[in-house]
Design a protein around this nucleic acid. Structure first.
Lengths: 366, 366
DNA sequence: CTGAAAGCGCTTACAG
DNA sequence: CTGAAAGCGCTTACAG
């Protein structure tokens, strides 16, 4: 019988293979190839032979085996709702890129889990904590007390813009109230007094903080708060467009706001669309401002004046905070105190805001 | 000596723990909890006890251990250049969302690896194939023959818009030449004859195919190809803006193109900006069209007419093609033939294109 | 400086 | 229907 064709090793080379090829134990190969500190204990000649054998065999340490032995996957999980109302999430993209960059720098993999809805899918979270990730970053989670209680305690969490602080975790947020306050104050300083605010979904922490800043700035300028100028919407382009569209329809013939401060960039874009539909020009007839300074703020014509949140940096910081928790956990008695890190916001001036029209504008009738 | 405080198991429960609690072997627990088909072989009573114990102990199968035993991580890797020229990549976001959706549906994790540059970072690719992923999706790879040769053969690859086919892999692309042809043909049918094309980076397969479609449509209408109307740029907003800006500067006083067909949506957005800078209106003075139909195409004012590539669907299909390869590999003799799947493109009409101005426009002098 | 052994937590044949 | 054993490929004490 002819020698059966040697089956090409679809199997990747292991440490044992390398050891055999170099005439040493698998363990020696492990020390040289994967062990960091103790590799000095191998004689230079042996070392060279092992390295050569590994290169020849194209040895790659098996990630699963290493993870099992080290009890460490070197993988960070990211859980978020990417797709909100059929629209992709700019906010997510900025944060995510910051996370990826930092994770790569720290030699961590990044695994993404998308939820379609926090409330409905929070139950999936514990299932992700089965050793496939070492820790989890929650992007803008909206979790009930029950959902928080159900989170396993052997996996550390870090959240960005958590709606409710998660005990034992780090929460990263930005000073949204001040950002909104500064934006509206500056609008006022430019001469605007009749300022419409298109909000995010009511009840969301961020939306309420922005409303708070808006109201405070009005109060500081002794401009009475006008409830009809507070318009409930949401954080998508469509919701922003629809909210303003409906408002304009209702307000036909009445005085047009001089400026519109939107809850985020997406709803500001929606507002631009709604204004364009009825032939109003930005910023000649009305000024428009957003919030977040996502990439989208620079792709509109005119470009958006907005409140910048350092989303990219916040994503990176989330990774670092998570790794810090991971290490402290392995080391001493774990710093599991709840912690909040607040990033400053910053006004970004672009063309969508100018001074008010000299003659008051009226909402066109369609 | 007082009983030392029982250290709370930071350690998660294992199959052995569950088995012990239920009075059976770890193996029986494995069959009931994780084994799919053979779970019928356990008596119902035993089964119930095991399930109860698992719930009580909050048992989660350890992903690393399972991966090691099964030689399967249930994780798909995605490698791409997300950040092009400081700009986040819309194209990526659409594709990525399609990938995530399909991966979740098929119960696969998705791990993202970002490269800063294909040429420079291709060497990192083999390192990713160390068992941490079962297969890799390459988004818009630009690989040299050397880089392709260096790819390990124990990990299946699928590529979207590969610049060069990778032997043994699946490549997903769309019929870009036809898309470009149709777009330009329709511009012509609307009355445009002087049509500028802002290209992607020359030499890239996609860019060349779009140029091809552009030229063919001109030829079909017997409009002579005018080399000065073919403007080299790239796929970012900045490159588009700069390319058109420079062109307009050079062409001051000459005849303005009636329409501008851009290599992608980002460069179309850049073009909108360049036109706005010199006070030209879209579409009154000049029509603008993009390519891709990314989300960005709907956030400009006016919204972009563009060629739609079904990026979301293509991302999903990439996952399925990869899983098919994975399964065939485990099963019979592996279908490792190179395969190309071509998706149709589609014209999407929005407000950025109309009929040409009745009187010819001239490029303004700045 | 180097090796033999045990163990990480699971699954997969193989016996009963 | 159920269990004891071997093995996935690595790392981490522990001996020499």
């Amino acid at each position: 019988m002819p020698r059966s064709r040697k089956k090409k090793p679809a199997r990747a080379a292991t440490l044992a293979d390398v050891g055999r090829a170099a005439g040493v134990s698998a363990m020696a190969a492990s020390v040289v190839l994967n062990g960091a500190r103790s590799s000095s204990r191998i004689a230079p000649g042996t070392r060279a032979r092992i390295l050569a054998a590994a290169a020849r065999l194209r040895y790659r340490p098996n990630a699963a085996a290493r993870a099992l032995a080290e009890r460490r996957m070197h993988t960070i999980g990211v859980a978020t709702v990417v797709d909100i109302g059929g629209a992709l999430n700019y906010y997510f993209l900025e944060v995510f890129n910051g996370i990826l960059e930092a994770a790569t720098r720290h030699r961590q993999n990044t695994s993404v889990f998308t939820l379609s809805d926090w409330e409905r899918d929070a139950a999936r979270l514990p299932g992700l904590c089965d050793g496939r990730i070492d820790g989890l970053i929650l992007i803008a989670p909206v979790l009930s007390a029950d959902a928080i209680r159900a989170l396993p305690d052997h996996t550390p969490f870090v959240a960005l813009h958590a709606n409710v602080p998660i005990p034992g975790s780090v929460n990263l947020e930005s000073d949204e109230a001040t950002g909104a306050f500064e934006m509206v104050r500056h609008l006022i300083s430019r001469g605007h007094r009749r300022i419409l605010h298109i909000t995010g979904k009511r009840g969301l922490l961020g939306a309420e903080r922005r409303i708070l800043g808006y109201k405070r700035a009005l109060a500081a300028a002794r401009i009475p708060f006008e409830p009809s100028l507070l318009v409930d919407a949401g954080y998508t382009v469509d919701e922003g467009r629809r909210a303003l569209h409906d408002w304009l329809e209702r307000a036909a013939g009445q005085l047009l706001p001089q400026a519109i401060f939107c809850g985020n960039d997406a709803s500001a874009i929606g507002s631009l669309e709604a204004l364009a539909e009825v032939g109003l020009r930005v910023p000649e007839d009305v000024s428009v401002a957003g919030f977040d300074d996502t990439l989208a703020a620079r792709t509109t014509v005119p470009q958006l004046t907005t409140v910048r949140q350092p989303l990219h940096a916040m994503g990176g910081r989330a990774v670092e905070a998570l790794l810090a928790r991971l290490h402290s956990r392995h080391g001493s008695g774990a710093s599991t105190a709840q912690e909040t890190i607040v990033f400053p916001t910053e006004l970004v001036w672009r063309a969508s805001v100018s001074t008010p029209a000299t003659t008051p504008r009226v909402v066109p009738t369609t």
